[in-house]
Amino acid sequence: MSALLPPARRVWWKEPLDRVELAWILIAFAWSAILFFMMPYWHVFGKQNLSNEAYRISAEEFTKRTQTMVDKYTVRTETDEKIPVVHPPEGSDVYLIARLWQWWPLLELENGKSYRLHLSALDYQHGFSLQPSNINLQVVPGYEMVITVTPNQAGSYSIVCNEYCGIGHHKMVSRLYVK
């Protein structure tokens, strides 16, 4: 029962390594270096990176900015609640509110064009989950995350909330259209 007992030799640090161990350590070290390298590599050459652009913002201020966008660019409303569908111009600032238990408003973007998407929550934490692409971001109240998104396929997407936000969490789902 040797691992349960103190090492037999007083000085065990100088015991030689078996080649199995040595070879595996070298392989594992090289692989770890590759794993590490991939992240900065993707920042330079990949097209899917979070921008790190973030601000503190109050719920009122974020609502106000969203409302301004909605007033300008609403093209129609949908559902019984008459949720506005917003079609903002390319390159503009697009706001999306997460709140109990709704994403607001509905967004309509154009394929291949870029938008500055602002995400924030008004109350609890929420999870932005774009389906079926499966892009998932944390939405935190008091903070605004800004990312530039470029849709690459037209169609009707869903936005699911995937951070537990109370009893209506599973009803928090919305659409996003790409033309």
Binding site: T79, S129, N134, N162, Y164, H169, H170, V173
Partner: peptide, 24 residues
């Protein structure tokens, strides 16, 4: 999860919502 199903979620069919997502 690879197909997008959320964790901590009671109803993946989103019954009773106006704009439900339909998982495959």
């Amino acid at each position: 999860g690879t197909l997008g199903v959320p964790r901590r979620h009671w109803d993946m069919s989103f019954a009773g919502t106006a704009l439900p997502h339909e998982f495959p």
